[in-house]
Nucleic acid binder design. Sequence first.
RNA 1: GCCCGGAUGGCGGAAUGGUAGACGCUGCGGACUUAAAAUCCGUUCCUCGCAAGAGGGUGAGGGUUCGAGUCCCUCUCCGGGCACCA
Length: 997
Amino acid sequence: MDRQTIVPMATDCKDYEPVRIESHWQDYWKKDKTFRAVDFSERPKFYVLDMFPYPSGAGLHVGHPLGYIATDIFARYKRMRGFNVLHPMGFDAFGLPAEQFAVEHGVHPRVTTGKNVANMVRQLKRLGLSYDWDRAFATTDVDYYRWTQWIFLQLYHSWFDPGRNRARPIDDLVEMLESGKLRIGRDRRILFPSRDETEDGKPDSSGGRDWNGLSETEKREVLAAHRLAYLADVHVNWCPALGTVLANEEVTNEGRSERGNYPVYQRPLKQWMLRITDYVKRLEDELDLVDWPEPIKLMQHNWIGRSEGAVAHFPVGGEPATDAAAARGESAPALSVFTTRPDTLFGATYMVLAPEHPLVDQLATPDRHDAVAEYKRQAARRTELERQADAKTKSGVFTGAFAVNPVNNERIPIWIADYVLMAYGTGAIMAVPAHDERDFEFAKQFQLPIRAVVMPGDDWLKEQADKTAADAGINGAPIDEIRRRYIRHPDVFPEAFVGQGLSINSSNDEVSLDNLATPDAKRTISRWLKDKGLGRTHVQYKLRDWLFSRQRYWGEPFPILHGPDGEILAVEEDELPVELPEMEDFRPHGSDDPDAPPRPPLGRAPESWRFVERNGVRYQRELNTMPQWAGSCWYYLRFCDPDNRERFAGPEAERYWMLGGKAKGQAENGGVDLYVGGAEHAVLHLLYARFWHKVLHDLGHVSSPEPFGRLFNQGYIQAFYYEDERGMRVPADKVVDQDGKPAEQVQDEPDRRFFFEGKPVTQRYGKMGKSLKNAVTPDDMCEEYGADALRAYLMFLGPLEAMKTWNTQGIEGISRFLKRIWREYVDRDGNRHPKIADTAESNPDTLRLLHETIKKVGEDIEELRFNTAISQMMIFVNHLQKAESFSIETARSFLKLLAPFAPHLAEELWARLDDRSSISAASWPEYDPARLEGAKVKVVFQVNGKYRGDALVDKGADQDTVLAAAKDHSKVAAHLEGKTVRKVIYVPGRILNIVVS
RNA sequence: GCCCGGAUGGCGGAAUGGUAGACGCUGCGGACUUAAAAUCCGUUCCUCGCAAGAGGGUGAGGGUUCGAGUCCCUCUCCGGGCACCA
């Protein structure tokens, strides 16, 4: 054993008194430190983690601990299986809610956060969760966020080497540049030989510039363009009312702030960004290394949004664009577009740029200048809401400029429209209206030419022809006629054909795609483009870089200083932490004016904090803070070594807990062995944490390639809630039905009318919570039924991953189950029940059922199927109750099975069987497969697939023997009467089916 | 619109292609009790039948199979995610 134990003592309860028993054992666990995780124990490690909570002021309702109880059962089970279990808990305590609560109540967020954490700890402890509380921390602890800042510095001081496909120190890059191994291309991007092929835009033929010829400022800019953390002018979701920028996920579909529902505007601002896009390929490919639910992996794939296609360059030509450009002494630019359908290049009849595209002003002809400027203004002002609402009708304006379609040298007009997004691809598209819905709508609206270049199938043609008006001349026409019309006039058809088919109308002097199937056509044209230097195949991702700064007080300060000439200076590691300054007024200063500049609260911090002198130069601290995601990106690492003052976690501790050995059940490629939380974090938290982890891994700070080896998503708890006539929610626990019965008793019965204070209310259904006034607290449930009952009930409700309806009444069944166990073990005087014999188990049925139960409960826990595990235990207890007596060994074995689910009751009864140590230290019972079945097995008899009876037969009985037994069965015989047996199917030991005519 | 999940008694749910409804809640009947609570016993998918029993039944329709809640196709409804991503 790794530890000394205090000898546990049972209470003196005569009846099952959960409240007394539970507090007794919670005290014991606390004093004994029963659940301490032991670093470097010889036993195999197992890391079980919950997604840590935000400590809200409202406290927990019964839905919150669902996942915590599941992991607790798993952790307790794994300990009994001989694992050294790390099962910690912490608090994600930075963030806007604490700040807003603090603002409303005039209390410092540190105070409210502390109070909320204390309350949540109390609630969690009361549930008997077996956390190693010595490892608990909050992300707001200075000792913690100091290392969040340290990780930010690692990002800042690193770059992604596309050749090695991993992050490296920025110093390595400087060295390579100084030695002339790398040169600098357009936009301060370094030319990497390996990436040249996939680089966006026109290939740089100049060979690039030499690093040593650059000015200091230019050098800084080049490095900034490659650091994993960088400042950039980006279009952000600016919410003037909240005085802060918001991440995309914090903006609703209606284009308003998730918190407060204020309008959000698009606006360029200088913000910190993290270069997550450099990791996109690894974030996608390495999903193969983890054991996660497929739907969650799929959501990450969709978010990453990989599309294969080609980049093509369209020279901007024709007058007057070239003339205008020539007049300014500029060479004609080329517009690059990304397309997933390069096979439709011959059908590109116009181009569209995003209104924010940098070449728009240069391209617009003088006569179109005003219209273009006006459209740009409008587009900038339009909120997401307006854009969404207008998604059906396309808007846009002609720039006056023309480009040349490189496959046929055709002059095609260049438009701008807000249906093209600057943030995706190159911010420009080639429009192929015949084969893209959006381009089709736009072309129809602005009467642009539509040219068919892919032949649809006959079914599609007929279906479309049927939708056209009679005067179009194709409705009901012969298929040959419809085909002919499509080739010449796709515009008379009501929709674009976006499917695959054989190419048509697609050839020039050098290349022909005609009659090629779409995949072949793509390959052929891509090769041609590449040979001609007009484009290349390209993989495009939807994922964008991560906007990492917020204009808020209650977050981690950046360890960054700004010099007078725009120099950015990272705070030295040994100067960390940069503590959040104490402030009287930490409110974000909102405004109704969307154009007002952001005024982060830290701008009002004391001068002594804001300004720092280095080498005689006065620097100002970065005034933004990090987003709430930052703290939750690496907390699982801190749990490995939470008190380390020298590092975020000691390398040995990190390696022990995160990589471990290769014990059965551990995550295959390392990482947390079981991570449980809600599916709402399927994308962002998990993607961000994976990104940070990979950076730390590349820099040699962590040992596993992925942070979370096995992931499980628990479902929500839903509940009924009630609204009065005005749509106001009323407290659900005060609602009664027409007979005056509490609503919670009759909530799912039909034909109920509900009333609150005599007035009728409407029953609705939704996620449990404060806002719907339907929260049921674990405190109330523990008080009335005990934590063991609440734990088991939440698990009994249904599959862990499913959405479940709370029904307070149902807990009675579990409560009875626990009381029944007590009565089987303890007599009326509080002594060991006389039914428990000190002999070996003598009842063969008990023995068989016990082994079945050991098997089923163990297997179900491994798969997190706790509901069926509990059912099996109920079956076993129902059997014990009917048995005359049972052995002390049977009694002990069952308690071990019960212990993960109802640990307090199990400890209490275990101690009463004169055991001298905690049941948590007992080892999980093994089942004996030989005990699972008797000498005889039950075979079901069917006639024509219908059950007609069954009988016990010898295990090894052959078909003829069983068939004879079946024919002896009176009911089977009755159904065979007068029929001819056609066929007999016998599944040994299971079923015999007689097919008759 | 696209991509994932689901749909089984009055309710929560259970069923390696092999007796559908385990386990529990509720309801009903009974025992114990002066009474109540607690506890225990019985019963509770639908239809017909006094009963023994027979027939039907897992959102709808079709298919594969000796046999389908489970596998395949089409559709309906509900939940979740993404959404002008070229």
